[in-house]
């Protein structure tokens, strides 16, 4: 691997690394229960939860590591963790 001058890297190049493969438990978002507070988006250590055009939230499963912080902290208990079949 050739090193760039100053060992620099393109901003956000880490997106090449799809950390979703680490996941054991998958968060399932129930949009019916969601109060649109955005706590899941704020507290996700990956920053992989995005607001869709309807104002509710969905995780990007390509990056979600399944830590479960969103499910533990959701004030409406609208997120459940389900073991994933692989």
């Amino acid at each position: 691997m050739a090193l760039a001058v100053g060992c620099r890297a393109r901003p956000g190049k880490s997106r090449d690394n799809k950390t979703g493969s680490w996941r054991v438990f998958k968060p399932i978002f129930d949009h019916e229960k969601c109060s649109k507070c955005g706590m899941c988006r704020t507290l996700c250590p990956e920053g992989c939860i995005h607001e869709n055009t309807e104002g509710v939230f969905d995780p990007d499963y390509a990056f979600c590591k399944g830590c479960g912080i969103c499910a533990a902290e959701c004030p409406k208990a609208a997120i459940t963790m389900k073991q994933e079949e692989k």
């Binding site: 880490s14 997106r15 996700c44 250590p45 990956e46 869709n52 309807e54 830590c67 912080i69």
Partner: peptide, 28 residues
Amino acid sequence: MAEKKTCDLFDCGHRACGGCGAALSARL
């Protein structure tokens, strides 16, 4: 369904453990 992307200056794909407090602090 089109998404409004969370424009984070600390992006996905980093290799912190799931549930890392330091990664969250970097985002915030």
